[in-house]
């Protein structure tokens, strides 16, 4: 790469860095990049509608992604998926079952007591 090319690319990379750090907005970033590139190619700088959706005000926020992240995420996803698969049937309501069993036991106990008392008094 000759000196002119190196300077051009330094300018392009610095411009992108400014955009990535939100120092300039998307429309300004695109406009300045077109100017730099057209100066290199010799083509006229195009006039573009800056209100186009692709040049909105979204700014980047970079997060590093590693193979380790991917493995960890995959590992974390597996245990989460297993209970979901197991619980795909009707859930068992243990509290309700115990209450019903206790009530049945209490009613049958009371019934047995009443029967015993009435039988003795008869």
């Amino acid at each position: 790469m000759n000196a002119t090319g190196e300077k051009l690319n330094q300018d392009l990379l610095a411009l992108t860095e400014s955009f990535a750090n939100a120092a300039i907005g998307p429309a300004e970033f695109r406009r300045r990049r077109r100017e730099i590139i057209c100066e290199w190619t010799g083509q006229p700088v195009p006039v573009v509608d800056v209100s186009a959706p692709s040049e909105d005000d979204t700014h980047p926020g970079m997060k590093a992604i590693t193979d380790k992240d991917v493995r960890d995420a995959a590992r974390a996803a597996k245990p989460a998926a297993a209970p979901a698969a197991e619980s795909s049937g009707k859930p068992i309501r243990w509290g309700l079952w115990i209450t019903v069993m206790l009530l049945l036991f209490a009613f049958s106990g009371a019934g047995a007591l009443i029967w015993f008392v009435l039988r003795r008094s008869a």
Binding site: L13, I37, T41, I65
Partner: peptide
């Protein structure tokens, strides 16, 4: 050991920033 740790990727962040260089 961290040679595989990348800081940009498509899908890596809400807003993607790509770099551009020109060459002859």
């Amino acid at each position: 050991p961290n040679s595989n740790v990348i800081t940009r990727a498509v899908g890596g962040a809400a807003a993607l920033v790509v770099d551009v260089v020109m060459f002859d």
